[in-house]
């Protein structure tokens, strides 16, 4: 007698299979896609998924990073190394070039360049004629993302219109666009931070060192740890402490804060993530704290 319950995939295998399917749909439907690779953990997972989806062939898309010029060296070094190991083409476009062109104008020299990545990204999309950008965004990261489609349509200005999204049914993705328009594809939409760390553990993926516990000078401000760097020096009256920290996300130096942690292995990070009491973006992204709706606002303006 066979058992009544059908064999199904484990949750991690299911998420992996879904992501591979999405990557192959992008490759099958779009003429000129690109994968956004920052050296962060989510896009590191994307690269492994792309290997599973397309090897022994080459990736049917190049990798691209929009560099604010304010990234940790450990992360950009890792980015270059990983692309070289995979033998895939890496395009880097810089917010500083957009500033030189005059298309990005900072309100003041110290303003975070994070939101200005949108401009540089749109310029790169136009330069290369990309019709789809594959990104590592997840729906559990933030309220606005919870409603975003897996294949998310952007108009000529790169804008996301949350009220006018294409219906997305079954796994019949519609990645069609006219010239100048663009699709953002999110293969790990349905993953949580915990899923990402479990996948990193299972696949034994290498990460930039700053994801692991290390001692770093920081200043405590607004409940966040602000790293003291050349770009973000301590101000008069700041109390600088050496604290054992790790980064949970690795964005722009000026707006990414580490958390206190002694987790120096993936296993320990997993244990912390499973029991953590602060959401990922809440603990670490100064730019999301401005208002409850700030991510939605940036997405409408063409952010990932």
């Amino acid at each position: 007698m066979s058992t009544l319950t059908k064999q199904t995939l484990s949750h991690l295998d299911w998420l992996e299979a879904e992501a591979i399917h999405i990557l192959r749909e992008v490759a099958g439907q779009c003429a000129n896609p690109v994968l956004l690779f920052s050296g962060g953990k989510d896009s590191i997972c994307l690269l492994r998924l792309a290997e599973k989806a397309f090897r022994p062939g080459r990736f049917p898309f190049p990798l691209m990073h929009i560099d604010t010029g304010h990234n940790y060296k450990e992360v950009t070094d890792f980015r270059d190394k990983r692309a070289a190991e995979l033998g895939e083409r890496l395009i880097v476009r810089s917010v500083e070039d957009s500033m030189a062109r005059g298309t990005v104008v900072l309100k003041h020299p110290g303003e975070s360049r994070n939101k200005h990545q949108s401009v540089t990204l749109l310029e790169a999309i136009e330069e290369f004629g990309f019709d789809a950008c594959i990104g590592g965004a997840r729906r559990d990261e933030e309220k606005a993302r919870a409603k975003e489609r897996i294949m998310s349509f952007r108009d000529e200005f790169g804008q996301w219109d949350p009220k006018n999204q294409r219906p997305e049914l079954w796994n019949l993705y519609n990645a069609r666009s006219h010239k100048g328009e663009n699709i953002r594809a999110f293969p790990i939409s349905n993953w949580t931070e915990l899923d990402v760390w479990q996948y990193i553990q299972r696949e034994q993926l290498e990460l930039p060192s700053i994801y692991f516990a290390h001692t770093r000078p920081v200043v405590r401000k607004n409940g966040l740890l602000q790293p003291v760097t050349e770009l973000t020096p301590a101000r008069d009256g700041d109390v600088v402490e050496d604290v054992l920290v790790r980064f949970r996300t690795v964005g722009d130096i000026t707006c990414t804060a580490p958390v206190e942690s002694d987790a120096d292995t993936v296993e320990k990070i997993l244990a912390e993530t499973a029991t953590t009491t602060i959401t990922e973006r809440g603990a670490t992204r100064m730019d999301d704290q401005t208002s409850e709706a700030s991510m939605e606002q940036r997405k409408k303006e063409g952010y990932f």
Partner: peptide, 22 residues
Amino acid sequence: TDGLQAEREQGITIDVAYRYFS
């Protein structure tokens, strides 16, 4: 589960949202 700005303003839900728990 209140997601988007427009929804918060109107106090209603206007689109499918996806949530996760384990």
